[in-house]
Design a protein around this nucleic acid. Structure first.
Lengths: 228, 228
DNA sequence: AGAATTTGTGACCATTTTGTGACAGTCCGG
DNA sequence: CCGGACTGTCACAAAATGGTCACAAATTCT
């Protein structure tokens, strides 16, 4: 359902930045810190798109791109190159190597995500994220907006992520632990009850529009978003 | 409730990729980086399926597979092998070792998840997250919903667990002690008559839909869920 | 039939689980 | 450096659930 994106980037901070924003946009993210590692991951499991840093320790990103294009199995794999700057000659090299798009640092996260969507859409339209509409409650991942009819619903960041997760996984019950894992991130140490509080805040925000009852409590287990 | 999958894979990036996609599909994921570690994990807590890399440092995956098949307690444990390529001879070895399916690298994450579901479904449908349907009474473990036709049946947590147990073990008589063990958990100290009360509550909840008579009393012994 | 067992039922209350409001720390833009 | 937005925790309130009990009803045994 959700596309998997492989991020090949040696700088931890930038890798993290990319990963967070992509996850936030609903993508699944795999990471690699070097071209070799990226190559290994790709040989094991084809992602839907590769985001490849131009400059990598050891084998360069562009070399990996060429290699991918040369292999029958990865010929079609979309590639986005990350570069400090694109000179004309780099561009030519890159086009040769077969990148589908470039993103130059520094980049805005929103733009980055938009580029990823654009490339995915070109390859296979259904992978790109469209606005989700469930019973009149609309969430647009691209514009980061939640609306009901023409009314704008203001949400804090966490509320937004929570609602996004629910709307992309309707009808299914999630425990507090699972929600912490999926919405907050794996390694955090947060009280499970904190989830309750955010559920409440989200409900309060949706309440004026009547959508609050979509978030159902499943006693003894967790919460569920009613998808119909 | 959600099936647990043990991933035995030494390559961190691939392990992560597997884990991310499996979690996303609603599975709980345990990890091990070597056959030995995997073995230990399995002995500590039986997962519902093992995804086993063919090539592992030290003891090979295939050796672990054989070992699992040889042990009475893990004889039935579904195994999916991850291989770089399957030669005919590997296949024979693998079949001997008792793998239920193979996934050859590179694989697409979506396909991988589909395979896992397929294997689980073969063993026991409800583990694949499928609803159980007995005579029009439907129980969906993923959404934690019980329905008859399009009517929603509200159940408390214990009632739900009890019904789940019955529906996954129809046609068989259970004593109160066995039910306490299986539905409540081993170590509890609860009056046996308490089971009767919950049976009654469950019957009451099912009664408006005519399914109450499925729960049959076997005098002098216990209860049975009629499976057809 | 009458007594003895076993199971069904309704009610009660303690415990557990969830909802809510408040609060203090952090982060960020101005 | 200030003020506002946002988050994670707490403590307490509200709700629901769960285990028992006492008694009724049903079944079996003499």
């Amino acid at each position: 359902m959700n596309p998997t994106i492989l991020v090949v980037e040696d700088e931890p901070a930038i890798q993290e930045l990319l990963a967070v924003n992509l996850k936030h946009a609903g993508f699944l993210v795999a990471r690699a810190a070097s071209a070799e590692e990226g190559d290994a991951v790709i040989r094991a499991a084809l992602p839907d798109l590769v985001m490849l840093d131009w400059m990598l320790p050891g084998q360069s990103g562009i070399a990996l791109a060429r290699k991918l294009r040369a292999d029958e199995r990865t010929k079609e794999l979309p590639i986005i190159m990350l570069t400090a700057r694109v000179h004309e000659e780099d561009k030519i090299q890159g086009l040769e190597a077969g990148a589908d798009d470039y993103i130059t640092k520094p980049f805005s996260p929103k733009e980055m995500v938009a580029r990823v969507r654009a490339v995915l859409r070109r390859r296979s339209p259904h992978l790109a994220g469209e606005a989700i509409n469930i019973g009149g409650l609309k969430l647009n991942p691209a514009t980061h907006r939640v609306t009901s009819g023409d009314q704008n619903i203001e949400l804090g960041p966490t509320e937004f992520r929570l609602l996004f997760f629910f709307m992309t996984h309707p009808e299914r019950v999630y425990t507090r632990a699972q929600l912490l894992d999926d919405v907050w991130g794996d390694h955090v140490f947060i009280e499970e009850r904190t989830v309750d509080v955010h559920i409440r805040r989200l409900r309060a925000a949706l309440e004026p529009y009547g959508h609050h009852e979509r978030i159902e409590t499943v006693r003894g287990t967790g919460y569920r978003f009613r998808g119909n």
